[in-house]
Simulated scan of single mutants.
Amino acid sequence: MASPLPVPIEFRLPDGWRPAPPDEVGASGAAFVALHPEPDAGFTANITIDGEFPPDNVGLPELADESVQRLHEVAESVVVLNRHEVGSEAAPALTQRLTFSAVVGGMRRDLVQSQVYLAMLDVDDPRKRVVIRTYLTATAAQHDTVLPDFQEFVRTVRPDTGAVP
């Protein structure tokens, strides 16, 4: 079942990407999914969003480690290619890129997942920190082609304060 985000956010999808109901595309637990318009060898690149209020003593690297462990439960050959802490002290973020092999649609596929963890303060209670996770999953062959779209997307993710621009 799709899960709501712990805080409202706003973002802009790259041209051509279309929203899809998380439960209908096998992404239960996600709050949002967008699909690329051009599948590669039967696999559709996707952007997925979820988030949580982590315990105060859990940092972004620990959350990234947990994501790797969860992926090990459904995929094989999970490798963390790189991980970087980015952002600022006020707005920390972490990026990591993983490769893995998984059976999707009855076929084994070599996939790449770029993950971005964005820490934000809860606009209703600034003492609380929320982490919004965004993922790009694509075939190894298509990943570098769709990565600029994902980077553009991540730059637009921000808390939705309800203010009209």
Score class of each variant (00 low, 15 high):
Ala2Pro: 12
Ser3Leu: 15
Pro4Thr: 14
Leu5His: 13
Leu5Trp: 13
Ile9Lys: 12
Ile9Ser: 08
Phe11Gln: 07
Phe11Met: 08
Leu13Trp: 11
Pro14Ile: 07
Pro14Gln: 10
Gly16Trp: 00
Trp17Glu: 00
Pro19Asn: 10
Pro19Arg: 15
Ala20Arg: 11
Ala20Leu: 04
Pro21Met: 09
Pro22Cys: 12
Glu24Leu: 15
Glu24Asp: 14
Val25Ser: 02
Val25Arg: 03
Ala27Phe: 12
Gly29Ala: 12
Ala31Trp: 05
Ala34Tyr: 00
Leu35Thr: 00
Pro37Thr: 01
Pro39Trp: 05
Ala41Met: 09
Ala41Gly: 08
Gly42Ser: 11
Asn46Arg: 11
Ile47Gln: 00
Thr48His: 00
Thr48Phe: 03
Asp50Val: 06
Gly51Leu: 06
Gly51Asp: 06
Phe53Asn: 05
Pro54Thr: 12
Asp56Cys: 05
Asn57Val: 10
Asn57Pro: 02
Gly59Arg: 09
Val68Ala: 12
Val68Met: 10
Leu71Asn: 06
Leu71Phe: 02
Glu73Arg: 14
Ser77Leu: 11
Val80Asn: 11
Glu85Lys: 13
Val86Phe: 04
Ser88Gln: 04
Glu89Gln: 13
Ala91Ser: 13
Ala93Val: 03
Leu94Asp: 02
Thr95Arg: 13
Thr95Pro: 00
Gln96Thr: 09
Gln96Ser: 14
Arg97Trp: 03
Leu98Trp: 02
Leu98Cys: 09
Leu98Asp: 03
Leu98His: 06
Phe100Asn: 06
Phe100Gln: 12
Phe100Val: 06
Ala102Tyr: 09
Ala102Asn: 08
Ala102His: 05
Val103His: 10
Val103Asp: 12
Val103Ser: 15
Val104Asp: 05
Gly106Asp: 06
Met107His: 14
Met107Phe: 12
Met107Cys: 09
Met107Lys: 15
Met107Gly: 07
Asp110Gln: 15
Asp110Cys: 05
Asp110Ala: 14
Leu111Val: 08
Val112Trp: 08
Gln113Thr: 09
Ser114Ala: 15
Val116Met: 04
Val116Trp: 08
Tyr117Gln: 06
Leu118Ser: 12
Leu118His: 06
Ala119Thr: 12
Met120Ile: 09
Met120Asp: 05
Leu121Trp: 02
Asp122Gly: 07
Asp122Pro: 05
Asp122Lys: 07
Asp122Thr: 04
Val123Asp: 11
Asp124Leu: 13
Asp124Ser: 14
Asp124Cys: 05
Asp125Gln: 09
Asp125Met: 07
Pro126Ser: 11
Lys128Ile: 02
Arg133Met: 10
Tyr135Pro: 00
Leu136Ile: 01
Leu136Glu: 00
Thr137Lys: 01
Thr137His: 00
Thr139Leu: 03
Thr139Ser: 13
Ala140Met: 09
Ala140Ser: 13
Ala140Gln: 10
Ala141Gly: 06
His143Asp: 05
His143Ser: 06
Leu147Lys: 09
Pro148Leu: 08
Pro148Lys: 04
Asp149Thr: 04
Gln151Phe: 03
Glu152Ile: 00
Phe153Ile: 04
Val154Cys: 07
Val154Pro: 01
Val157Arg: 07
Arg158Pro: 04
Arg158Cys: 06
Pro159Thr: 15
Asp160Met: 04
Gly162Ile: 06
Gly162Ser: 08
Ala163Gly: 07
